[in-house]
Design a protein around this nucleic acid. Structure first.
Lengths: 110, 110
DNA sequence: TAATAATATTGCAATATTACGATAAACAAA
DNA sequence: TTTGTTTATCGTAATATTGCAATATTATTA
């Protein structure tokens, strides 16, 4: 035990969970927000922007990349990271869909 | 080490991370989707809808509730769970805001 | 009251995450 | 080539999560 039983859920459910999980840490939320703020990929100073050691930041970046939330390209001895708008769109659409469904129905409880 | 350094991030960043983390597991995504589908709070059969044992489901429900994504009321010997629309709205707004910011700026990289 | 039904809690094993020091790798510049 | 800069990886300790059997709790019903 201890491992998530991904095989018992739908691909879509797993996809949303993966994206959400990646954002399930304040450091990774902060990284996303910083990438939006600077609006460029030459982000060689992410480490200085976060209250974490360099290896930890590197690890968080890796997780964001694995989840598909950011894209990274090697650029000289610096790395060029930026947000993958596609992933943000997926999340936006998902919650919009939920919102619509919730609003459509008169909820008669709680 | 091993514990998230929440104190070094903003309240808002932690709030988003908490909500996202709660959805960072396919079982909890499935629970949310089931609650939307049935559109009622008399949800005494959630356990039967999931490929997990009863204690595990109960634990996931607890986490969703702690994160504020669902509300629960005791109703006889059953529990009445339903989605907290407020939380969904928070997430929707957050990603909408990001989307707007990304679109506003012509991205010149990646 | 006793039996039944539904959900919660406890306890524990397996696994995953978080964080960072040490070190490696890759490149630019001296 | 050596030095400095930047990011990645390794190794490891601390902590958290996942999952479930066993058990407890709570309320309904017989």
């Amino acid at each position: 035990m201890g491992a998530t039983k991904t095989e018992n859920f739908t691909t879509k459910q797993n996809a949303i969970a993966t994206l959400a999980k990646a954002l399930g840490h304040p450091a990774r939320v902060a990284i996303m927000e910083y990438l939006i703020k600077v609006n460029t990929c030459i982000c060689g100073d992410i480490v200085n922007e976060l209250p974490l050691a360099q290896p930890t930041v590197s690890q968080h970046l890796k997780e964001l990349k694995n989840a598909g939330l950011i894209k990274g390209n090697i650029e000289g001895n610096a790395i060029c990271y930026c947000i993958d708008e596609n992933a943000v769109t997926k999340l936006l659409n998902y919650f919009a869909q939920i919102s619509i469904k919730l609003e459509k129905k008169k909820r008669n409880c709680c």
